[in-house]
Amino acid sequence: MQLTTTRLRLDGLRREDAEVLFRYRADPEVSRYQGWRPAFVDDARRFIEACHAVAPDTPGTWFQRAIRWSRTDELIGDVGLHFVADAEAAVELGISLSPAYQKRGIATEALNAVLGFVFDGLHKHRVFGSVDPRNHASIKLLEGVGMRKEAHFRESLRMDGEWADDVIYAMLDREWQACCTAKPHRG
C-alpha cells in the first residue's frame, strides 16, 4: 500500500526510520494516550522489522505505514490499520504524528487517504478509532474526517498503571460515500 496526497506519501517504514520513529513515539506528548511507546531505539528497530512481516488485510494484525513529507521524504508520523480478527469487515485506525508537524492538517490529510483506501480499495464496511476522552486533539481529528461517537467505556483500559476511559468513534462505508466522496480533496 502506497498512497499519495498533495503533501504526503504513505508507504512502508524503513530500517533507517528507526531513530526518527523512536524520537517522536517516545515523546511523552505523543505517547501519552498510546498503547506502544519505545523505550530504546532498538525497540523501534524491532517494531519496523515486525511491520515488514505483515501483509495488508491480514486478520488479527496491525498494518503500519509511514507518513512522509513528500517534498523531503522525511518520516513525520505513522498510521496503523488493525484488521480485527473476529470482524472481517472492520478496521481500527491509529495515528501518530511528530510534534513539529501537528496542527497543520497533516493528520486529516493522511486519514482521509487511508479511509479512501479502506473503503474504496479494500471495500470494508466499518472503520473505527479508540481514543482516550482526554485526548481532545484526536477526538477533533476523528470528528473532522466524518467519524461519529459510538460508545464511551468507563475505565476499560489499563494504561501506564492507571485505568482509563475508552471512547469509540466510527464510520460506515455508506457514511463515507455520502459524506466524504463529495469532498473536493480527500487527501
Rank of each mutant, 00 (worst) to 15 (best):
L8H: 09
L8I: 10
L8K: 06
L8W: 02
L8Y: 03
L8M: 12
R9F: 09
R9T: 15
L10Q: 06
D11H: 04
G12D: 15
G12M: 10
L13D: 15
R14A: 09
R14P: 01
R15A: 13
R15M: 11
R15Q: 13
D17S: 07
A18V: 03
A18K: 06
A18T: 06
E19I: 01
E19V: 02
E19T: 09
V20F: 05
V20M: 14
L21A: 14
L21F: 09
L21C: 08
L21P: 00
F22T: 01
F22D: 01
F22Y: 11
R23L: 10
R23I: 08
Y24N: 06
R25H: 10
R25T: 03
A26D: 08
A26Q: 05
D27H: 05
P28L: 14
P28D: 13
P28G: 15
E29C: 11
E29Q: 11
E29V: 09
V30W: 05
V30P: 01
V30E: 14
V30D: 15
S31Y: 02
S31D: 06
R32D: 02
R32E: 03
Y33F: 10
Y33R: 00
Y33G: 00
Q34E: 14
G35V: 10
R37P: 05
R37H: 08
P38L: 04
A39N: 13
A39P: 00
A39G: 14
A39I: 01
A39R: 10
F40N: 07
F40H: 12
F40P: 00
F40E: 13
F40D: 12
F40S: 15
V41L: 06
V41K: 04
V41G: 10
D42I: 05
D42R: 11
D42C: 07
D42Q: 14
D43H: 08
D43R: 09
D43K: 05
